[in-house]
Amino acid sequence: MEVINELRALYGVAVKSWRIFLSYKIWFISDVMLGFFFVGQALLIGIGLTGERNSPALQRLTGYSDYVTFAVLGFMVLGFGLTFLSGFVWSVVDELYAGTLEYSFAAPIRRLTFFMGNVLTRIFLSLIYMSIYVPLFVVIFEVRFNFLNFIKALPVLFVGTAGMIGMGMAAAGIVLYLKDPGPFITILEMLVFALSGAMYPISILPRGLQIMAKILPYAPTSEAVRKVVAYGYEKASGEISYLIFLSLLYALLGYLSYKWSEKRARTIGLKSY
């Protein structure tokens, strides 16, 4: 009974945030276009710099010789990661500042359910975006990868997702305190973008940034997904084990730090709280 109630609540939150998202029709279109042009350009820059599609340097670094295939896979992981991070944070911030968060927080629904409901909508959205982008890139850039292998790699992506959700919760906890969270979120997004290993292998980064990239959940997810797509699960077991460890750690720490943060917010009493 408890479980069914919680699942219905989860569904209720997902439906609500989906409806609200749909009410911003123009955003949806601009979101899709922006992502497309952004990634399209990144791809073109990559090709322009290496001079050709197939780079021996990339092959040496990552096992992929085709830059576009490499980047499209990375981009899909990044797309996921960013939807969680910004989506998560904004779904809290928007409601916090619009004044609608209080009624949800006053309800008996568990906090994790509330967040996961919002995340569910974002996952669904990400999948829609992907299903628009990927075929487009495949056609325009003639990307070649085994689609079946990609489907096989999805579980790895979902493992990484747990860590990305943790990151999102931790960030949401911080954002509760910021008067103007815009800059914080933008910086965080840039950082995640730069360290995600989506558009270039992280091994070309300076040493310090490499370490940061390694301990954030994004690059390890990209790497594990790419390895599985190219070589299968057995060869990727090292990457996958590390990702599982990292993801669980982030999920746990993210949840706990959010909890702590909200408890503190209830103590000091935020203006919009």
Partner: peptide, 14 residues
């Protein structure tokens, strides 16, 4: 839609 949302997060039976 508002009430439906609140019904669910307040565990109102289906």
């Amino acid at each position: 839609e508002n009430l439906k949302y609140f019904a669910r997060i307040y565990y109102v039976p289906k």
